[in-house]
Amino acid sequence: MITFINRFTVTGPPEEFERAFERTSAFFGTRPGFVRHRLLKHADDPATYVNVAEWQDRDSFEQAVRHPDFAAHRAALRALSTGEPGIYTVHYERVA
């Protein structure tokens, strides 16, 4: 399992970013290896969002972002925001 985290700073209208992200979410939801994701919006800074996505493995994620249909999604998000993406693995976890 890997976790992809991308912190977005929205530079365009937030509503347009959210719609573009929703379309991207639908695309990823159809890709093999996708588990789930959450889009978080900063409580005090309306221009900051964080995507936290879980994938079965790194290869599944990389195949999804290399898929030709993803290019349009990437372009739409980049037109409305800047991102700080990274892939993470679980180092430590505690569950209540």
Rank of each mutant, 00 (worst) to 15 (best):
M1G: 08
I2T: 07
T3V: 11
T3P: 02
F4K: 14
N6C: 11
F8D: 08
F8W: 13
V10T: 03
T11Y: 08
T11E: 13
T11M: 05
P14G: 00
P14C: 00
E15C: 01
E15T: 09
E16R: 10
E18K: 07
E18M: 08
A20M: 05
A20S: 14
F21I: 01
R23Y: 03
T24Q: 11
T24V: 05
S25F: 09
S25R: 14
S25T: 12
A26P: 07
F27V: 08
F27Y: 15
F27D: 05
F28N: 08
F28A: 05
F28Q: 07
T30V: 07
R31T: 00
G33Q: 01
F34V: 05
V35E: 02
H42W: 01
D44A: 08
D45F: 00
P46Q: 02
A47I: 08
A47E: 13
A47F: 07
T48G: 00
Y49E: 03
Y49D: 04
E54N: 14
W55L: 04
Q56S: 09
D57P: 03
D57S: 02
D57T: 02
R58F: 01
S60W: 01
F61Y: 11
F61M: 09
A64T: 04
V65Y: 04
R66W: 07
R66V: 07
R66I: 07
H67I: 02
H67F: 01
P68V: 04
P68C: 05
F70K: 03
F70Y: 12
F70Q: 09
A72C: 05
H73F: 06
R74Y: 03
A75L: 06
L77M: 09
R78A: 15
L80C: 01
L80G: 00
L80S: 02
G83D: 14
G83K: 03
G83L: 07
P85Q: 04
P85W: 08
P85D: 04
P85T: 05
G86S: 09
G86W: 06
I87T: 14
Y88E: 10
V90G: 11
V90R: 13
H91T: 12
Y92H: 12
Y92E: 13
E93Y: 00
E93P: 00
R94D: 05
R94Y: 10
R94E: 10
R94W: 11
R94S: 05
A96M: 10
